[in-house]
Design a protein around this nucleic acid. Sequence first.
RNA 1: ACGGCUGAUAGUG
Length: 238
Amino acid sequence: WCNIRKPGKAIEILYEMIDVGYAPSNRTYNTLLDAFCNDGQVDEALKFFKFMKARGCVQSVPTAKSYSIQIVALAHSGRIEEALTLLGEMRNNGCIPDVATYTEIIEGFCIAGKLDEAFKVLDEMREKGYPPDIVTYNCFMKVLCRLRNVVEALRLFDRMVEAGCLPSNHTYNMLIKMFCDMGQLYMAYDLFNNMEKKGCAPDASTYCTLIKGLFDNARVEEAFSCLMDVTEKNMRLP
RNA sequence: ACGGCUGAUAGUG
């Protein structure tokens, strides 16, 4: 808890705590790991991780989360091979990857443009009894929307619903953006109207996406009226 | 009150 977003300072404090004979908890270690990762200091995180392992006391033994935290950081920085190595180590140390961990690996492959590998992971997690959840689906949706692959994106949308996994705000927002970027505002509106009906309230991101889409497609008046709607709802746009 | 998914602008590089 004593961690602000200054991992450099925080680690000093942690070392001090240890010197004085105080044993930081598991969460403290993980929080610090995460702080390094969020600050883009992935290598510092890895270094600190080695320290954790080297200490060999109960509290510093990595948990599944310790691994997960670093896997996502590696995946996000395109270091998918290292993420996989870490996943292997995680298993060897008796930590069980969960849906989130698998999803992180999937995202890593998607970022690296290796969609086929991502699908393999999906199969693997299914085999192990971890069905994909909303975030997993959204990772795939993200790539499909980026590629503007309308057919596959909509197919995935249907499959989510069939699988009983209700599309979230994120799902809708990505699709709406794709249609805006493609100039298919009709489709964007369609989704927008649909989400309310399905009990998924548009959020600030939704409006941002839609309003920008309208502007970019030279439909300024509609953009303004959309903006009025937002202000009426007292929603604060970032 | 330790981890995974979405928009935009500005800034930084």
